[in-house]
Design a protein around this nucleic acid. Structure first.
Lengths: 127, 127
DNA sequence: ATTAGCAGTAACGTAAAGGTTAGCTGCTGT
DNA sequence: ACAGCAGCTAACCTTTACGTTACTGCTAAT
């Protein structure tokens, strides 16, 4: 009887921690997806100095194709990192900028930056 | 004269910040590379409850092929996250475990986890 | 005797990410 | 009139990550 209760508690605990663990895995996965890939960080870096137009970005980043830049910008717009401003003056000017929301990435980027530097140093000095 | 000095200072500043910026990009890139991909996190999660043998890992993770698991473990060994212990008893038992060094990822994973949860909530509630 | 587990590796196949080339509309400078 | 820039998109191709199947040599169980 007592054993069963314990078992249930254990089971529940296990289920909960597994659930929690999966939630973490998914959350981390989401985060990695949002900033992962070959170009997202460079786009953020390029945008972080202010508004940028499509061809400015392509030139500044260097090496990215229009197709990929276009896709990435759309993706980042959906994720709320980037805003696409259309100035319907003459001529029409389209400029991209980072949103305030993109600032929330700062702590993540800081952690990744610090760890990356530390790791590089560790690897360089022969593990 | 003064202008030139300013320009040099500006130039130097620009060069330094660009250099710094690239260092950050590379560091973040390294970090993403180290924990990115479809399986690394799940392998870390599976290992985090203690020593695990190859087939244990494959079963626990579920869905990963032997080829990929093997490659990932080698990669993670090179990065210093995983240690491969060979117990030359009878029979020979090979077990993988997380190193102490892998603990340094904690702050990174924490930041990613927190941000991922926050972002998911943000997306769920319609940006 | 055969079946299954362990710890992988080799060869091959597929799917997703990213790159290349070309083209579109509408404008501007020469 | 023609070249060239802005802001893309479509079609196609390559590269990389990942998956599938099969196989190894050894041992332990049925």
């Amino acid at each position: 009887m007592i054993v069963q209760i314990f078992m249930e508690l254990e089971l529940e605990k296990k289920v909960i921690t597994q659930h929690e663990c999966n939630a973490s895995l998914n959350a981390v996965g989401d985060a990695l997806y949002a900033i992962g890939g070959k170009w997202k960080l460079r786009i953020i870096a390029a945008l972080s100095s202010g508004n940028k137009r499509f061809n400015d970005l392509q030139r500044e980043i260097g090496g990215i194709s229009a197709r990929v830049l276009s896709n990435e910008l759309k993706d980042m717009e959906l994720n709320g990192f980037v805003k696409r401003n259309i100035d319907t003056g003459y001529p029409v000017v389209i400029a991209y900028e980072l949103t305030e929301y993109s600032q929330t990435l700062e702590s993540v980027l800081k952690a990744l930056d610090e760890w990356g530097r530390m790791h590089r140093e560790k690897v360089r000095s022969g593990l």
